[in-house]
Design a protein around this nucleic acid. Structure first.
Lengths: 178, 178
DNA sequence: ACCTGAACACCGTTCAAGT
DNA sequence: ACCTGAACACCGTTCAAGT
């Protein structure tokens, strides 16, 4: 995994050959194929590793929030701080997510995050309008925040300044509208 | 472009070889490379074609909206109806967008859509809170709606039922919050 | 001017042989 | 049991030869 992360960062996805990863890891190409059935599975393993770490971050951040407002602020902060190590690596992996298998376990981590958000919303459901289902709202928020952080990190850096307040307004307006 | 679209739909991105596209188009592989420098440029051309069409849809839908509410409803409807032809093809192309060149012209279409939304918001800026910048809000809305429609079409179909009202609540709550 | 397709370079994957 | 790397299959791309 470390060798893969290094090669991806240095050469991008297309430039990442199984031979290069094996060489960097100090094993033969045959050995690599003993542990991973193909290149896709190799990349998927790294994606799952990062996704699991991210899901744990959300779980921890949202666990003990007293008010809905505190919870939303923690949610926004965690979403924005979700640039674990190298942003370039994060970007490369994100681009590969849709193409890796059935999105498999990366989707599982995404569902974990949704569930953490859903628990927060359920704990304060008396604050939400009647028509706002907490589980569905959690999916909406996770998707929207993830897309906005992603776009601001990659491609549209002018979004980054003041994004935190913007995301809070988006979440709060959606959840607590008349 | 037609041959490419067919082969992509039938075989997916990995299964789409330049040889197969050339064969389907009824030309030799050499001819294909006379018009497109490489496979990426070939796919990029199809992406640009679809993106331009989408941008035109938004321009038209948002042009003559009397009220902000009408405009937002048109925005949500257009975003949801943005499944031009084959949804499978749309999905395959979307997955390739981040990997195609500098995102080049697909990004240009995305900016056209943002500008169409920004014009709508600017026309009704007296309805927005003072801290809500129309240009930035347009970028936020475009990103969030696109991500939610994309996720509901691909991967999470349970989102689709009632999504239109959900998106409207998200947009209206964000724009017209206290 | 434009087309053709055999040939080339390269990469993912396998498997017979080694330890 | 596990490792090795030459060999294979396949795909993107080129270019000498044809029209």
């Amino acid at each position: 995994m470390d060798a893969l992360a290094q090669v991806l960062t240095e050469h991008g996805y297309e430039g990442t050959t199984t031979a290069r990863v094996a060489e960097r890891a100090g094993v033969s190409i045959g050995s690599l194929y003993q542990y991973f059935p193909n290149k896709e599975a190799l990349v998927a393993a790294l994606i799952e590793q990062q996704a699991a770490k991210l899901a744990a971050d959300f779980d921890q951040a949202l666990a003990g929030c007293a008010s809905l407002e505190d919870g939303l602020r923690a949610l926004v902060r965690t979403a924005m701080g979700a640039r674990p190590m190298d942003p370039a690596l994060h970007r490369i992996l994100n681009e590969q997510v849709p193409r890796v298998g059935r999105v498999a376990e990366a989707m599982a981590a995404s569902r974990c995050i949704e569930q953490a958000i859903a628990r927060l919303l359920q704990a304060h459901r008396h604050r939400l309008p009647a028509e706002r289902d907490p589980v569905r709202a959690a999916l909406v928020l996770e998707t929207a925040l993830e897309a906005l952080v992603h776009k601001s990190v990659n491609g549209r850096p002018e979004l980054l300044a003041g994004l935190e307040e913007e995301l809070y307004a988006l979440a709060a307006g959606y959840l607590m509208a008349p």
